[in-house]
Computed example of a mutant assay.
Amino acid sequence: MENNKSELKKADIKKLIEALINQLDKLNDSTSFAFDSDLYWNITDEELYDPYKNPKELTMGSLIEDWEFLQKVLDGKREIIDYDLYKIASLLRFLGKSTIITKSRI
């Protein structure tokens, strides 16, 4: 059976997330990561996924606020919601730019 490249399969997403978690677990130098940045540009979905127009409606997001918002799920103070994917995505993007996994291999 051919894998459709334009389709996200839940099982594949889970495999990728598990692979990233396994790499994070292999990091010997730290069990936490400091925010060396906080604010980031946020673009509305309509503009983010329309590459033929320049974004006009930019807002600011905060990594620290995103993390505090997500911690409420971990603390049992609220249920998880779809919007949490946006919040975790901003944190994952921050970790990706920090190249923590690549640095651990050097």
Rank of each mutant, 00 (worst) to 15 (best):
W67H: 14
L58C: 12
L85W: 05
W67P: 01
E65F: 06
E65G: 03
E79A: 12
I64A: 12
L74I: 14
Y83H: 09
E68R: 12
D75I: 06
G61R: 08
K77D: 03
F69E: 07
L70K: 00
I64P: 01
W67N: 11
D84Q: 02
V73L: 04
I81D: 11
G61I: 03
E57C: 12
Y86K: 08
G76N: 05
I64E: 12
L70D: 04
S62G: 06
W67M: 13
K87A: 13
F69V: 01
L85P: 00
G61C: 09
D84P: 05
F69Q: 02
L70W: 01
G76Q: 00
K72H: 11
G61M: 04
K77F: 00
D75G: 05
D66S: 11
D82G: 13
K87P: 02
E57G: 09
R78V: 09
D66Y: 01
E79R: 15
L63T: 01
L63P: 03
K72Y: 03
E79C: 05
I80H: 09
E57M: 13
I81W: 10
E65Q: 14
E79V: 10
G61P: 07
F69I: 01
L63H: 10
E79G: 09
D66G: 04
E68P: 02
E79N: 15
I80C: 14
E68S: 11
Q71K: 14
K77S: 08
K77L: 09
E65C: 05
Q71H: 07
T59F: 06
V73T: 13
E57N: 15
R78Y: 03
L74D: 06
L63F: 08
G61A: 09
L70C: 06
V73R: 02
I64T: 10
E65I: 08
G76W: 02
L70A: 06
I80F: 10
S62M: 03
L58N: 03
S62W: 00
D66L: 01
Y86V: 10
D66K: 00
L58P: 02
I81G: 07
E79T: 13
T59C: 11
I80W: 08
K87C: 10
E65M: 08
I64L: 10
T59E: 10
D82E: 12
I81T: 15
